[in-house]
Structure formats: structure tokens, C-alpha cells
Design a binder for these strands. Structure first.
Lengths: 105, 105
DNA sequence: CATAATACTATGCGGTGTATAGTATTATGC
DNA sequence: GCATAATACTATACACCGCATAGTATTATG
């Protein structure tokens, strides 16, 4: 699939995947993977970006000697999702524009 | 609107806007603008990219002393549109994933 | 006669997906 | 018992693309 199409979707995907739970990176990858292709090198930067934007709050905890970072969606994160849904209406219109003009194709 | 969401859509928008006609840059901007925000600094690089990818064929012609480049969608361009439509089905699924997990939001 | 519209070109920035590589622990299979 | 896989993170570096900015040059308009 064209990479560019996924841009802007992934951030919200991660927020949606975390939902109301307390999730950590590796778990999120496993959760999302069946639905959307995502690797560590994609996810971890996203998590850091979302944290910097205050869309996620983070709590570090040790689990079996390994450090785990648990993420939780903040109110700002929920607003982000809401905005995304509004944007999506516009995206749909753009798609309609394309679909209408390429019926024969 | 989030810029990232538009990525990957614009290329196909341009192909769709040209359709079966013989269009030039400035005209395309005027055609698309009511539906999708697009400026010269966005469109012209897109046209060059699509040309390099053989999705567009180009013919230069003088019009009132000004040089005009007329673009036409090639078979490869039409394939590109077809692929996009297939990709869109996947994108819709990703959106569903998000929508389902954020009903309360 | 100035301003707007037309129609291109070129440069550079910033955001982001991802490849690659590194570190370190625990669980599993032969 | 030891290699391999799974777990769980970090850091660096590249390529793509939307867009801002700026420049050039002609034609149409008030």
C-alpha cells in the first residue's frame, strides 16, 4: 500500500488502540498489527511525539527486570481523536471528488 | 486540517482533475481549489513527480507569449488511480478500527 | 499606468514512516 | 544446557512530500 496514505492515520490509530487502557509499546504493536502494519521504528517515535504533544501520559515501571513504559490517553489525546473524526469528513469529500471524476477508470 | 491526512490523496486528485482532458497547471489549481486547498508550490512538484513516474505526458505550447505545459493522463496514470481505489478500501478498514474503538469519544 | 491575473521555475524547511543497529532480559525448544 | 525466539526499549539516519517564500515575465483590468 502507498505509504503516504497511512500518514496522519497512525497517530490516531495508536490513541485508539490504547483507548481507556494502560498500554505499553510492545503490546500496542501486537494489538494493532493484525489491522495495520506497524513496526517498532514507526511506533516508538509516534509514542514520543504524542507524549510531547500531551496526548499521552507516561508511567515507567519495571516488569521482570525489563523497563516498561505504560501510556494512557489524556484529555488532549481525546480531543485529538475528535478533531481527526471531523477532518475525516473532509477527507471523504476529497475521495468523492476523485471517485466521481474517475468512474470509467 | 491535518496536513498529513492529505498526503497521498493529492497526487490522485490531480490525476482525477485532469481526467480525459488536456490540462495545464494554473487551470488545474483553479479546478481543484473549490474542493481541495492547493497552491502552486504544492501542485507543480506533483506534476513533475507524476511526469517522472510516467503517469502524465507533457506537451509544451505557447499561449499569448506565455509558455504553457499541457498534461495528459497516461495508461500508467490510470493504473495509479485504480491502485489508489484498492488502497482506499484498506484505509477505510483502518478508519473503522479507529471509529469502533473510540465510540464514546 | 498601477494592479491583478496568468503561468511557470527554484530553494529550503519541517514532519513523519521506516530501515538499521544496538542493548538487555526472559521464555522456549531440542 | 544452550541456542533461538520473544520481549521491550533506545538512537541514528534517510527519503518523501506539503508548503512557504521568492523570482521571472506576460497579459488583462480599472
Amino acid at each position: 500500500m502507498d505509504i503516504q496514505l497511512k500518514r496522519g492515520l497512525l497517530d490516531v490509530c495508536v490513541l485508539a488502540a490504547i483507548g481507556d487502557s494502560d498500554a505499553y509499546g510492545y503490546q500496542i504493536i501486537k494489538d494493532i498489527s493484525p489491522h495495520v502494519e506497524i513496526t517498532q521504528s514507526t511506533l516508538y517515535p509516534i509514542l514520543r511525539r504524542l507524549e510531547e504533544a500531551d496526548c499521552l501520559s507516561v508511567r515507567s515501571e519495571e516488569y521482570n527486570g525489563r523497563l516498561r513504559k505504560y501510556y494512557r490517553v489524556t484529555p488532549a489525546g481525546k480531543s485529538r481523536i475528535k478533531e481527526f473524526k471531523q477532518d475525516w469528513a473532509e477527507i471523504q469529500e476529497i475521495y468523492s471528488f476523485i471517485a466521481e471524476r474517475t468512474q470509467a477508470t
